[in-house]
Design a protein around this nucleic acid. Structure first.
Length: 205
DNA sequence: AATCAGATTTCCT
DNA sequence: GGAAATCTGATTA
């Protein structure tokens, strides 16, 4: 129901990455509200993780990863796409969860407009670069506090009787995608059976 | 369906 | 100089 607190984010990155699955990412823009369910995440740790930006210590780009949890770490990849991450761990310790794929729920027309496409819903936000474009997230929002009221994540209890800590899906864990180092670590998580996870979907008639 | 070049910033060997 | 937490459109078959 409620917006996730800093306490939620200030934990081990792997735990946060798994618990973010099924939650709703919300962006309140001037043009309207966009809401989408998180279906795929990846955990990036600190010094001990060769696949992480934080592996070699603090730089101009990754400094947000070392700060307090609950902030947005947004960076440009390959010169032209933005990736959206949620900062985790205690202040001073590096860690972030990359949001890799979403299931569009509200503001779908606006997302299509932002993406400048009108294809199937499964291809609107099924990749880290695609979802930032769909939600209107850019590098200028790097460091934004996710406990604020413009960009945040909330739990959506679809069945209140089952309690807040229940899950109506299974989590699959695999190696991370798009990196060369640390691919053996099982830090990618996604909702089993979701048609919205990032992957090349065969074109069918 | 599979492969590949191009876009183009930040950081490293 | 060259790789990198990506995506698109063209080409090949």
């Amino acid at each position: 129901m409620g917006k996730l607190s800093r306490k939620f984010y200030s934990r081990k990155t792997g735990i946060v990455a798994q618990e973010l699955l099924g939650k709703a990412l919300v962006h309140k823009t001037a043009e309207g509200i966009i809401l989408a369910k998180i279906v795929e995440t990846e955990a990036y740790l600190g010094q001990e993780d060769p696949g992480s930006h934080a592996y070699r210590g603090i730089t101009q780009r990754n400094r947000i990863m070392f700060g307090p949890a609950g902030k947005a770490y947004i960076y440009l990849v390959y010169g032209n796409h933005y990736c959206f991450n949620v900062v985790t761990e205690k202040d001073g310790a590096a860690g972030a969860v990359l949001i890799r794929a979403l299931e569009p729920k509200e503001g779908i027309q606006l997302m299509k407009k932002n993406r400048r496409i009108d294809g199937p819903l499964t291809r609107l936000t099924n990749g880290p670069g695609k979802l930032t474009q769909a939600l209107g997230i850019t590098g200028s929002m790097n460091g934004v506090d996710l406990t604020g009221n413009k960009l945040f994540i909330m739990s959506q209890s679809s069945s209140p009787e089952k309690g807040r800590h229940s899950r109506d899906f299974s989590i699959i864990s695999t190696g991370r995608i798009g990196i060369k180092k640390g691919t053996n670590l099982p830090y990618r998580y996604y909702i089993e059976g979701s048609r919205f996870v990032s992957q090349t979907i065969p074109i069918r008639k």
